[in-house]
Design a protein around this nucleic acid. Sequence first.
DNA 1: TGCCTACCCTTCGTATACGATTTGGTACTC
DNA 2: GAGTACCAAATCGTATACGAAGGGTAGGCA
Lengths: 228, 228
Amino acid sequence: MTEVAGTPQDTAEGSKSQRAYTAVTARIVDGTYPPGHRLVLAAIAQDLGVSVVPVREAIRRLEAEGLVTFQRNVGATVAGIDPTEYLYTMQTLSLVEGAATALSAPLIGPEDIVRARAVNEEMRTCLEHFDPVRFTRLNQDFHAILFEHCPNPHILDLVHRGWNRLASLRSSTFRFVPGRARASVEEHDALLVLIEAGADADAIERSARAHRSATLDAYLAHAQDTRP
Amino acid sequence: MTEVAGTPQDTAEGSKSQRAYTAVTARIVDGTYPPGHRLVLAAIAQDLGVSVVPVREAIRRLEAEGLVTFQRNVGATVAGIDPTEYLYTMQTLSLVEGAATALSAPLIGPEDIVRARAVNEEMRTCLEHFDPVRFTRLNQDFHAILFEHCPNPHILDLVHRGWNRLASLRSSTFRFVPGRARASVEEHDALLVLIEAGADADAIERSARAHRSATLDAYLAHAQDTRP
DNA sequence: TGCCTACCCTTCGTATACGATTTGGTACTC
DNA sequence: GAGTACCAAATCGTATACGAAGGGTAGGCA
């Protein structure tokens, strides 16, 4: 009865499960649902104009991806980023992103390099009046250019999942450790040089991984300084 | 480890979704549902004595993990392993397992080494009257000892997922390339020596990764020989 | 006054029901 | 005999309904 044959204008991705998944994911990533936010099935269902069943399935998928945590008979909440979780996620991301970048490298064309360099320049100018959110977004754009050609879809998927997890905290490490931003831009340049020169996969992987590990280390050092 | 015998209640893991997930996963891994097998919701539900709703959720989770493929309005089938998929999975596994092993290494005690060595000896004797299925099982046991201490749960989870994917093909590469089995046992010994000696993480990671990559390469070479 | 208990309300978990879609077979036509 | 169109069975997708589990609050008792 609710299924009006037609509705060709809305962004219906076919199944309502899928739509629910897309919608909730978007809201988590864009911050509408902040970390810790309680995801009430009925509320989301009503909001999307569907029943709870598709929403449940969407939540399950998000759970499997680690974007929400779930407790039986209690419900789902948007996964927070306690420091430990941040460490795990960054460590995993350094691993898979490093590999993805190395695997991509031979497939990265000159035009990609140009684009990446442009983004990095934008980041450099962004250093002046520093905006962590904007900087983080550019950072993601930069790396996306480098790893999106990864021919192994599993690894690429893992990279995306890692970035999604981090998306919960809107601004990443750079909010806490602005000093890291400048070094990051430099390392981007070095990484591009390596790729451009056709360095072997191992060198690129090491460089990309070290780049991310350094960000993690900066955060840890910062936490060490401020916490105890 | 995680299965503490303190819950003597019935086999129910609490929720029926969970039970369905566990049951279906087990049947895929143990080969009751072979690759390509069609998973009919109603049939599984009746078999488990529940309704279709929990089964649907279980299938969704399996889909997110890549163990089943799903087609809207058609249904789920157990994910097969076409050679391309095998390549991707092995490549990913070499990555995450290498890292997991390296991260575990400092936490591996002498008694673990003893156990691992025993398993490897069993594999060595197994070489005589070669049984691919048994050998593959021992191989998994061996590696499990080495990576289970991995302190990063994300990476550990990825390793488990990789192994689960491979479990679909009951006997792995060793069925096709029995010659690889002998080399594999040797490399296991070398890996144990490294860990025992407290080698640095990078060396261990390389060694573990190369070990798995070599298996993949052996398969690819074999495929090259027989296919064209 | 402070703590404990009992109740209620919110929210989840699962079953059942029904509409929607695909698929495979069969009959009809060219 | 081959191709196409149609029909029926199987199966999926989603809505609704109801029972169950948790958490919060008010009231009573020490």
